[in-house]
């Protein structure tokens, strides 16, 4: 079999495992699984911005929050959550465009702080505008939907809904990355000046990288609110944005599978490692440190890293001479 066929087989096995998984879970496990799917979906959006377009963002939780609050508003207004999907996508796309503007001026840690500042402003608004958001208490009892009389309220059904969201978002991201846009993003990340000279509109694509990444996270956010059942501002603070970035980087930024792995480390592993208690986060921090030192490409890059360690070093004239 060719490498491409192996890859296809791997993807099919992964899909089968993901589809079968909920049958082996109870209520708590199902909710965790759904949470993993949504965080992975938001991570795919962030990965587009960070991993593929190379723009650091510490404002991604805000997009998740926009989706979640819109969904809560819609449900509380007596509509269903569905109108919140296009609304969240549109809102996050527009806000994402605006958030992209600093990226036209500054890069790296400046951009990290600019986006973190944006997230902090959004947090303040969520906390202070009580008439709209319920302030610190947030919005309680956000019910899951019923579609054509078919209830998706039980955790089993809703886990599949969230898996479906992940599938759709993954498909959209896959399609974008295979399109000329994806190549433009990669050119932007690898060498913006060269990209410009190749005719890539750097300005437009930088903004798009934030807008699309944000819109995908916004869609994930719409499903997040009914999953947890309540929302409050702290679920979408800058700290959560930092966690999301770590999830993408630990999983492997710029790798398609990266956010899925990262979300597993961020969402599932703490449950399995419950016996470690608070030490789990110490171990997580240490894992980040170790990965950055030995394998900055994250878990997704680990097999190749191990392979290069085992193989004698090839001559690579393209290596950076910095």
């Amino acid at each position: 079999m060719t490498a491409g066929r192996w890859r296809l087989l791997g993807v099919l096995v992964l899909i089968a495992v993901l589809l079968a998984f909920p049958f082996f879970l109870r209520n708590y496990g199902l909710n965790l699984y759904a949470r993993w799917a949504l965080i992975a979906a938001a991570g795919i959006g962030l990965n587009l911005t960070v991993g593929y377009a190379g723009q650091v963002s510490l404002g991604h939780a805000a997009f998740l929050g926009f989706g979640a609050y819109l969904s809560a508003f819609a449900i509380k207004a007596g509509w269903t959550m569905w109108p919140a999907i296009p609304a969240a996508a549109l809102l996050c796309f527009v806000v994402g465009l605006a958030l992209g503007f600093p990226a036209l001026r500054v890069q790296h840690h400046y951009l990290a702080f600019a986006t973190l500042g944006f997230n902090a402003l959004v947090f303040l608004a969520m906390r202070n505008e009580e008439w709209l958001t319920g302030g610190n208490y947030g919005i309680q009892r956000i019910l899951r939907p019923v579609v054509f009389g078919w209830s998706l309220r039980d955790s089993f059904s809703y886990a599949y809904v969230c898996l479906g969201v992940l599938a759709v978002i993954a498909a959209i991201a896959w399609w974008i990355l295979r399109s000329p846009w994806g190549r433009a993003f990669a050119a932007l990340r690898d060498n913006p000046i060269r990209a410009e000279s190749l005719g890539v509109n750097v300005r437009a694509y930088t903004l798009l990288a934030f807008a699309i990444g944000g819109a995908l996270a916004g869609i994930a956010g719409v499903f997040f609110a009914p999953l947890i059942g309540y929302i409050d501002p702290h679920m979408f603070s800058g700290l959560v944005s930092i966690d999301l970035l770590l999830i993408v980087i630990v999983g492997g930024s710029g790798r398609f599978i990266g956010p899925l792995l990262g979300a597993a480390v961020g969402v599932l592993l703490p449950e399995w490692l419950r016996f470690m208690g608070d030490w789990y986060l110490v171990a997580f921090g240490a894992l980040v440190l170790a990965l950055m030192a030995w394998c900055p490409t994250g878990l997704a890059g680990l097999p190749e890293r191990v392979a290069t360690l085992l193989r004698p070093a090839p001559r690579d004239p393209a290596e950076r001479a910095t």
Binding site: L246, D278, G285, A286, A293
Partner: peptide, 24 residues
């Protein structure tokens, strides 16, 4: 040597480990 941004991310990891190390 892996890059300034890689180090920045690593220090986020360090911050998480320090905070929770003191907590635990």
């Amino acid at each position: 040597p892996q890059g300034a941004m890689t180090l920045a991310i690593a220090t986020i990891g360090l911050a998480v480990a320090m905070k929770n190390g003191v907590r635990a």
